[in-house]
Computed example of a mutant assay.
Amino acid sequence: MNRLTQLTGGIFAAILCVLFCTPIALAVSPQDFPPQPPDELVLDSAEVLSRSGRNEISSRLGELDRFHVDARLVTLRRLDYGLSLPAFGEELLGRWSSSTADSNKPLLLFLEESQSKQATVVASPALLEQLPESLLRSTGRTTMSQPLRDGDRFRQATLDGITRLEVVLDGGEDPGPPVQVERVALPTNVPTAEQTEESNAFTWVVVLLVVGTIVPMATWWIFSR
């Protein structure tokens, strides 16, 4: 009996752990990450990238080294309650910057959250003159977030963000956010509800006019004979 009670209690505890502990484990904060940047340039904790995608993004991030920039990508599943993605990025940036104080390379972090399909970009203060906060904010909210909302294209979102900032780092003008494609409805021969109602009303008017004309004439013709 005691063994059955222990087994039942163990199963009940496991169920509670699955129900309540798993969502907490999925939510992350900067303290859940290593105190210093890992060797990999892509930290795909949300597991939204394929191996080839990670390799391609890692290669593109590595190309920014020619500008003396330590660029990295971090993907997340879900943030801790009350923590925004920009706030998370700033905290992680401060955490990693303090551990690499002896390095002469400023950090440039691309961050993406899979649950809310949003992105943000943060940079060390040494980069803000060349990459102002308005540019970083626009890159995250428009250039990167649009592919995320349009089919969970995390690879494309990252590459688009890197490309935009790379142009500015290379001395070029900001290419700006992506062009918003306006969806135009194609013409159709199918009548709308309003058109149908108008058509039915016109038909009834014609029918009533015909009836109102023919019935009196037919009545007069019958009784006049």
Rank of each mutant, 00 (worst) to 15 (best):
I24M: 09
L61A: 04
F33L: 15
Q31K: 14
A25Y: 12
L61N: 00
E40A: 14
L16E: 04
L19A: 15
R60M: 14
A46H: 13
R54D: 10
V28E: 07
L16N: 06
A27N: 03
T22Q: 14
A46E: 10
E47I: 03
R54W: 00
G53I: 08
E56G: 03
A27E: 13
I57D: 05
P30C: 09
S29I: 00
P34I: 04
P37K: 04
P38C: 08
D32V: 09
N55A: 13
L49H: 12
L41W: 10
F33A: 06
A46G: 15
S59M: 10
D44L: 05
P38M: 09
N55M: 07
L41M: 05
A46P: 13
F33T: 09
Q36N: 02
Q36D: 00
L26T: 05
E56K: 07
V48K: 08
E63D: 12
D39F: 09
A27K: 10
V42T: 10
V42I: 14
I24P: 03
P35E: 12
G62Y: 01
S52G: 01
P34D: 10
S45M: 07
S29G: 15
T22W: 13
G53K: 00
N55D: 02
A25N: 06
L16H: 05
S52P: 02
E40M: 08
P35R: 14
R51S: 13
S59W: 11
C21V: 15
L41N: 00
P23V: 02
P23E: 03
Q36T: 14
D39G: 13
P23W: 00
S45K: 07
A27V: 03
S58D: 10
R60S: 12
